[in-house]
């Protein structure tokens, strides 16, 4: 009963958030200078040509009217046609979404693994040179934005020491036929490990570029929380029972220290998904973000709207998952 009510509340807030995002993007892309008509017509088009095209795309109507038509269609599942690609927005977005999801999730996993391992190691060796070294590495990782890490990785692992592919998502030379757009997931499920290897060789650098700054943030917060926990009385009591430092950190400190980090990962994961826009461009990775940049350059209004809605939906879902995990991990919140 309580859970049902919480879910309904959550659903309503999600809808309101999505509507807000829809309104903002709809208005903003119509208010900023530049419009799709100007991008489509050759130089020297007459005013009459412009008016004809505007009427064709409904751009002669008021913003309110346009919004009403669009939102009415969206509710029925019709996101319109892309102006430049001349395909349904829905198909385009759904086609590209798996690529971005796979990249973001891989980046998140790398970040959690790197940041978590570094924080645990630093806690185990606190007060020694190892902790100092990890702190310095974390500071460096945090001081550069993801796209600069991307460029640095391309230089080192793509050019100087070409271990990985610097562009694309999969080598066409493999000639592998995918049945879905979740390439990595599908290749894993079908146990095609050479394909998995090729996909990873394409995804690793963009994923690392996205993961490194997030790993540093996770490291700093988790290390701080762990350090505070290590002064708690139940840690001291566990020591008197005969447990080693490493098992105390993993079993007693980590579950208590992880909650703030979890919230942070949720927030930062949405930033990471935002970061895919530039990173996908940098690595010519065929994802949603790369398509978003093209859509903005071409003022492809329906496509921009569709992509932004999907991103907004993704963000609210991530927050929902974080809240649920939080309740699952913290016994004090469970009965509240």
């Amino acid at each position: 009963m309580q859970i049902a009510r919480a879910l309904i509340t959550r659903l309503i807030t999600t809808l309101v958030t999505l509507l807000g995002a829809a309104v903002i993007v709809f208005v903003v892309i119509r208010v900023v200078p530049g419009n799709p008509i100007a991008m489509m017509l050759p130089p020297g088009a007459t005013d009459a040509d412009i008016d004809r095209l505007k009427a064709l795309y409904g751009l002669d109507k008021s913003i309110l009217e346009q919004f009403w038509i669009w939102i009415g269609n969206v509710v029925q599942g019709d996101f319109g046609m892309s102006i430049t690609l001349r395909q349904p927005v829905y198909d385009l977005v759904i086609g590209r979404l798996p690529a971005t999801l796979e990249l973001s999730i891989l980046a998140l996993l790398i970040a959690v693994f790197l940041g978590g391992a570094a924080a645990l190691t630093a806690t185990l060796y606190r007060g020694t040179k190892i902790e100092g070294g990890i702190d310095v590495a974390g500071g460096v990782a945090l001081s550069l934005p993801d796209f600069l890490w991307g460029l640095a990785l391309i230089l080192v692992l793509g050019v100087l020491w070409p271990l990985f592919h610097i562009s694309g998502r999969v080598s066409p030379s493999l000639g592998f036929e995918f049945g879905s757009n979740f390439y990595l997931f599908e290749a894993l499920a079908r146990l095609q490990f050479n394909v998995v290897g090729d996909l990873i060789a394409h995804m690793l650098m963009p994923a690392l570029a996205l993961a490194i700054p997030l790993a540093a943030i996770i490291l700093q917060l988790l290390k701080q929380s762990l350090k505070e926990c290590m002064h708690d009385d139940y840690i001291t009591l566990a020591r008197t029972k005969g447990y080693s430092e490493s098992s105390i950190i993993l079993r007693d400190a980590l579950p208590n220290a992880i909650l703030p980090t979890l919230t942070l990962i949720g927030v930062q994961f949405t930033f990471l998904i935002g970061g895919t826009v530039i990173i996908e461009r940098l690595f010519s990775y065929e994802g949603l973000g790369n398509m978003a940049i093209d859509a903005v350059i071409n003022r492809d209004l329906p496509l921009i709207q569709g992509i932004v809605l999907v991103f907004a939906l993704l963000f609210t879902l991530v927050n929902l998952v974080v809240d649920m995990t939080y309740a699952a991990l913290n016994p004090r919140l469970r009965h509240a």
Partner: peptide, 27 residues
């Protein structure tokens, strides 16, 4: 250090000062 820890764990025990903080809240 390891032998010492286990010797203490087996033969000595602590009743701590503050029962409110001496139990792990997440276990």
């Amino acid at each position: 250090p390891k032998a010492r820890r286990q010797r203490i764990g087996a033969r000595v025990a602590l009743i701590p000062q503050d029962p409110l903080t001496a139990l792990n809240p997440s276990r």
